[in-house]
Amino acid sequence: MSGNVNRSTAYRLALIAVAAASVAACSSRPKPQFDTAPSTTPPPAAQPGDMPPPVSSGPLAATPGSAQDFIVNVGDRVYFDLDSHDVRSDARPLLDAQANWLRQYGSVRVRIEGNADERGTREYNLALGARRANAVRDYLVGRGVTSDRISTISFGKEQPIDPGTSEDAYQRNRNARTAIVSGAR
């Protein structure tokens, strides 16, 4: 468990560093406007493994339409139940926000990467990750993102984001990540 604490601390620190760097990078530019505000709400805390909410006091200064804007202000990952590829109700607000953002920045192309926890065998987990990636893809298409902007891949259990062996870690590793491939600012 102490590993989790350390990890999330490291996570937070990394996030602060990203935010600080972006503030520095953008300091001479006009203040970015958060016109995507409704969808930038951090996902519900019930989502395990979500990025912790921003800890800096001021608004985050990611360039709108940038990959960083997407990751920090929208959220790039949703989570799944054990051996399931159903989009959970608590993942919908985040995917809705992803769809809004993608509709707004219409030149962005994404790749949905499906992932599975280590409590399965390699080939089955590849297939399971593919189902998850496609469930997210279908959801985004259903929310108006054209399908030719979305590719999918499964990493199976090959790329865990949490190396731990607790139920929490397994839960974090059952996810689909929306990765920006091109077209971001």
């Binding site: 590829h85 080939e123 590849l126 297939a127 593919a130 189902r131 990636a133 496609n134 469930a135 279908d138 999918t152 499964s154």
Partner: peptide, 9 residues
Amino acid sequence: FSVERGGNS
């Protein structure tokens, strides 16, 4: 081998 299309293998 397996081929996956649209999430189905």
